[in-house]
Design a protein around this nucleic acid. Sequence first.
DNA 1: TTGTACGCGTTATCAA
DNA 2: TTGATAACGCGTACAA
Lengths: 346, 346
Amino acid sequence: MATIKDVAKHAGVSIATVSRVLNQSEKVRTETVNKVLYAIKELGYTPSALGRQLRTSCTKNILVIVPSISNGFYSAIIEGIKSKATKDGYNIVVGITNDDDIIEQEYIQFLDTKVVDGLIFLSPRRNRKYLKNYLDVYPIVQCNEYGLENAITTIAINNFKAAYDATKYLIDIGNKSIAFVGGEGDYTSVIQRKQGFEKALEEANLEVPKEYFQKTLFNFEGGKLACKYLLELTPAPTAIFAAADIIAIGAIKQIQNIGKQVGKDIDVIGFDDTLIAKIYSPSVTTVSQPRYEIGVIACEMLLLKINNIKIANESSASTSKKTLGYQDIIVPHKLEIRESTKKKEN
Amino acid sequence: MATIKDVAKHAGVSIATVSRVLNQSEKVRTETVNKVLYAIKELGYTPSALGRQLRTSCTKNILVIVPSISNGFYSAIIEGIKSKATKDGYNIVVGITNDDDIIEQEYIQFLDTKVVDGLIFLSPRRNRKYLKNYLDVYPIVQCNEYGLENAITTIAINNFKAAYDATKYLIDIGNKSIAFVGGEGDYTSVIQRKQGFEKALEEANLEVPKEYFQKTLFNFEGGKLACKYLLELTPAPTAIFAAADIIAIGAIKQIQNIGKQVGKDIDVIGFDDTLIAKIYSPSVTTVSQPRYEIGVIACEMLLLKINNIKIANESSASTSKKTLGYQDIIVPHKLEIRESTKKKEN
DNA sequence: TTGTACGCGTTATCAA
DNA sequence: TTGATAACGCGTACAA
């Protein structure tokens, strides 16, 4: 509980000198430095981040807003963010919203209350009109979505092209009737995946019955239900494109339940390449996103913004708005071919 | 960027009055209240948490230290912590250590720097002698381990009894030779599970060859490797007790790879009841921990400590140490029987 | 090279 | 019912 004052008194110097030693900002005689260092050790003193933050109006904290932490998809991105943040002396604060808009807004207010210096959204974007006021003022970055109305810097794969590639692959290995299972909630990324899916089928002159497009809960049960419905259709699809691995796995379990074989009777492809796709039995063909790298890049972009603002504030207060530009960054995706899909022999 | 001062000026009152309105602490004339409220809206003012925290020396932040966020086991606990914390107006800060002691220590210093009011460890405990100094001074709680040297409040299942129960079940369904696969690193919880395992076998007069005890990496590959080794032994075990679901799943994959059937040729049991155990194919018999509840209770205990300290500080500065007692809380476990184990017919 | 003094944005005490 | 003002712990311009 020792403060800088205690240290100063103990060392027989002023608090200014202690501060100088702490920050190595100006020259201090080595002799004095030692006195101060000794006093610090003696008292077990640690500078209060609070006082420092209030003074410098900079917390070295980054807020990461995520719908749920139980989702393997986000965790790798967070690890990426964390890695870059740590390197630059920043800590990350993870805000979990459970997809609740109110909670999300509360977290966003961390910017107002100066608890954090910047914000990274991992959550899919919804109708967030109020965000506009923040975008001009605070450093904010969005992961996994791009090309939307707000002027927000984004990092994502090309979801359209990724879905197109995956669908083309399903066609190439011999499928002519393919179903698409998306999640509920009109996330831009899922919409784009659906568009890529349609484009590939169109190019191959394959038609898709309306019933082949399924919306379901974004989880295991949702995948099971959607698959059950699809396999009871006549004709039933020979392949299922799921907009997420967990949905794909639900579908696989359902296929197994009715005694059919995945990769032989029916192909299933997922999305995101989460851990479970790799270790499931059968392992799941899926579209891989460089999640860790997405996190790293997102953090880099954010720190850039933070520093720009800092510099702008130091020079002139009026130009600060213009320093917050935005851009769309597209990272490469990759198709991971595994056991849940197999080339047909005819 | 408006401050309380701006609001005061705008409303034509003193900052003290603004503060009173904000905190509803003392009586303010409704007329004045309205003036202030109007000014607040007008300026888009949000109180700075920083100033407030500096003044009250209370951040309303809780630090949760976790080895990795990519681990399904921890996420549910975090959700539990978060739920309780939110109810009481606290935010949680998740610190990811990647099992690095240095990083962990840096996070612990958040207590010194007054960035957080308390700390919950989810990470398994290691040799943390330096912790002693913190335990007397700050509110700290440990999840998932108990009965150790330090006087730290803990919340966990009875790992010994849980493993005993699971092993007894394996014996009851007809297994006579059972192997134990633990993770590397001598985590107390794993050691206790091993002891429970041994106790059950001993009671059934079953002997376990030394080679049946395997240590391996705490992941999918580790499970595969350990299983490969075990199945090449003669005699090979008819059942495998894995100290974690992910290890069990590695083992299952390996069993499938060599063309044997899980639940028929070989039983496999996991630990923790993470999502993957439920949805894997086959689904995995496992010991369920009430992870969400563990999080809730941990948070409750921590908030209790935080409030105790607050009260102690208000009355007399000298008694604050004694208010930080400690206790071991044991929560119930449950055996979830699924497809990876099956009763033998003889 | 070092010390004095101010301010960061609050809350809380004391007077008025 | 309100206002003036002293803290909280720190960094830094300015003076010495």
